[in-house]
Design a protein around this nucleic acid. Structure first.
Length: 571
RNA sequence: CGGAGUGUAGCUCAGCCUGGUAGAGCACCGCUUUCGGGAGGCGGGGGUCGUAGGUUCGAAUCCUAUCACUCCGACCA
């Protein structure tokens, strides 16, 4: 491709509304343009990258025996009503009406559609298992679209759905998809990690997320330093302290703490170690009998909302009580709450249950109790794991300690079980002719997000440094002084033709621009290999080669550049 | 949705407080000079200052409403 016929819409300055590096570089490199919040146009060069990501996903899905289909993006409301998600899904579902006032939605995911298809097509156990996938545009009316392609409203997703006659069969496909995902992200050249995950609103029994590791990631992952344990922090278990609770050493006393409304202030003003304090968080309960529930977490720990919402006593999703509600129920404000004399059901974190001689609010404004001990001063309530793990916590598998890293979720595999097949009556006849409900799995990859994630992981101060599998072009061909030298023009035209014929995707910068401009553009857009030809080089029979990540250029005989590139790309 | 902020040329922004002829850099067009790391000179095109009202002799500037966008929180590929 000639740059003169393939305009590079590169920007020297960073658009003000782009926050993360991938968004900035995608805009600056002319890969995408914004239409509206969370909506982007893929420019020609950007589409090349997207298609390459798609190609790897498609090849590996096919290899795993999945069958590609293409379902409509617009879906009738009836199917969503049947699964119950028309009501559940909320405002994230873009709802539409046609000219007859019939209701539709723009698909954010396709469980209902595929389940409807399969229940019509599959009658016999002989037709199972099946695994259908598609690569298609989804729309989710995100509460807060941001970070460019990373959290767009419209995005390209590969979604696959498998149907089975037994949980064992589902497990086989689940494992196969897990392997396939690992192959896909490896081929794409990404540094990734599969982690145990919460099943969230889609439901189901088991799930793993695939994360590209990057500091800009929105998720926190807990990984063991001595085993392969890895989990999203939402799910990572905080194990109970090994040491038994120490015996009381202090008397409980009531202390005036008029200026300490937060744990931080308490620690600063009274010299109390933060591990000797307890936070009392009031949340809405799950039943009218107990409209408010108190969750107790050690002062230096953080409440895990996902874990808390799963407790039967707690409302799901988690809702914090307002100050007015708290005052009405307890008679004291949020800054002075504690377990002693608390007229609410309590649930203590495992770490809290192991504490002794600790400080907490006295449920009287401006007063705290210090030296509190369980059983002696207040009965130990129900104990549960309700906190986020922290760096250095023991790994739940008993091997090693946890480290926390950041990740961008690019893939997710679920065992759905019978959630949709039951609701939508997707059944088949087994060997005995009995009607059975199908067992389902589903498997997603955010294809457009993969593009952004790849940049987050592969860039430097000059721009993008694409992994080979995603690069829009393999080779940037840059002539120096071509517009002043007929001899050079002929030589480089021949080199361009030869390299293209040899199968390389070459971007030939035939602009009448200064070398610095061409170099800067090629590095910004991230072409992995650069070949420079000048008159000087022509005289010496050499071209200059530089890999996008190399520190220095090397001279290569003109006649050998083809083999040299081939060897470099084989690295 | 709650909180914070921003809308002025394709991009980055100044001007607004204190109302009086709409600006700079980059980009773009022409000429020129230069030619291995986003050069320089001369000339040029381009904005009803987000939109709609209001105050005023006069509004980018003050007031009101409205729309859009960004950031911080709960969601997800």
């Amino acid at each position: 491709m000639r740059v003169s016929q393939y305009p590079l819409a590169t920007l020297k300055e960073t658009p003000a509304d782009a926050e993360v590096i991938s968004h900035q570089l995608l805009l600056r490199g002319g890969y995408i343009r914004r239409l509206a919040s969370g909506l982007y146009t893929w420019m020609p060069i950007g589409l090349r990258v997207l298609r390459k990501a798609e190609a790897v996903v498609r090849a590996e899905m096919d290899r795993a025996g999945a069958l590609e289909v293409l379902m409509p993006a617009v879906q009738p409301a009836e199917l969503w009503q049947e699964s119950g998600r028309w009501e559940q899904y909320g405002p994230e579902l873009l709802r539409l009406k046609d000219r007859h006032q019939r209701e539709f939605c723009f698909g954010p995911t396709h469980e209902e559609i595929i389940t409807d298809l399969v229940r019509r097509e599959v009658r016999s156990y002989r037709q199972l298992p099946v695994n259908y996938y598609q690569i298609q545009t989804k729309f989710r009316d995100e509460v807060r679209p941001r970070f460019g392609l990373m959290r767009a409203r419209e995005f390209l997703m590969k979604d696959a759905y498998s149907f089975h006659g037994s949980p064992e069969s589902l497990h086989e496909t689940y494992e196969a998809m897990y392997e396939t995902y690992s192959r896909i992200f490896t081929r794409l050249g990404l540094n990734f990690r599969a982690v145990q995950a919460d099943t969230g609103s889609i439901g189901g029994s088991a799930s793993h997320e695939f994360h590209v590791l990057a500091n800009s990631g929105e998720d926190t992952l807990a990984v063991s330093d001595q085993s392969d344990y890895a989990a999203n922090i939402e799910l990572a278990e905080a194990v109970a302290p090994a040491a038994p609770r120490a015996a009381p050493a202090e008397e409980m006393r009531l202390v005036d703490t008029p200026d300490a409304r937060t744990i931080q202030e308490l620690v600063e003003q009274f010299g109390l170690p933060i591990e000797k304090t307890v936070k009392t968080l009031i949340v809405h309960g799950a039943s009218d009998d107990a409209p408010l529930v108190a969750l107790l977490v050690r002062g230096d720990h953080e409440l895990n909302a996902v874990k808390a919402a799963k407790l039967p006593e707690v409302a799901d999703p988690l809702v914090f009580a307002g100050e007015d509600e708290i005052r009405a129920a307890i008679g004291a404000g949020p800054g002075s709450l504690g377990p002693v004399n608390l007229p609410l059901p309590m649930i203590a974190d495992r770490a809290v249950a192991a504490m002794s001689d600790f400080g907490a609010g006295a449920n009287i404004d401006g007063k705290h109790h210090f030296g509190i001990n369980w059983e002696r001063d207040v009965a130990l309530p129900q104990v549960a794991d309700v906190r986020n793990v922290v760096e250095g916590d023991p790994s739940p598998d008993g091997r090693g300690r946890l480290r926390l890293v950041r990740g961008i979720e690019v893939g997710h595999v679920f065992k759905l079980g019978t959630k949709y097949s039951q609701a939508m009556k997707a059944t088949y006849l087994d060997e005995q002719g009995r009607e059975q409900v199908m067992v389902m799995g589903c498997y997603g990859i955010g294809v457009s997000r993969v593009v952004a994630a790849a940049i987050e992981q592969n860039h430097d101060e000059r721009g993008i440094a694409w992994p080979a599998a995603l690069a829009p072009f393999d080779v940037a061909l840059v002539p120096i002084g071509m517009h002043r030298s007929q001899r050079l023009r002929e030589a480089i035209e021949k080199l361009y033709a030869d390299l293209t014929a040899a199968g390389f995707a070459v971007l030939f910068d035939d602009r009448d621009a200064r070398p610095g401009v061409m170099f800067a553009d090629m590095e910004l857009i991230g072409i992995p290999h650069r070949v420079v030809l000048s008159e000087r080089g022509l005289d010496a029979g050499e071209v200059e080669y530089k890999g996008r990540r190399d520190d220095a250029a090397t001279q290569v005989p003109l006649a050998e550049i083809d083999a040299f590139l081939r060897q470099r790309m084989g690295d």
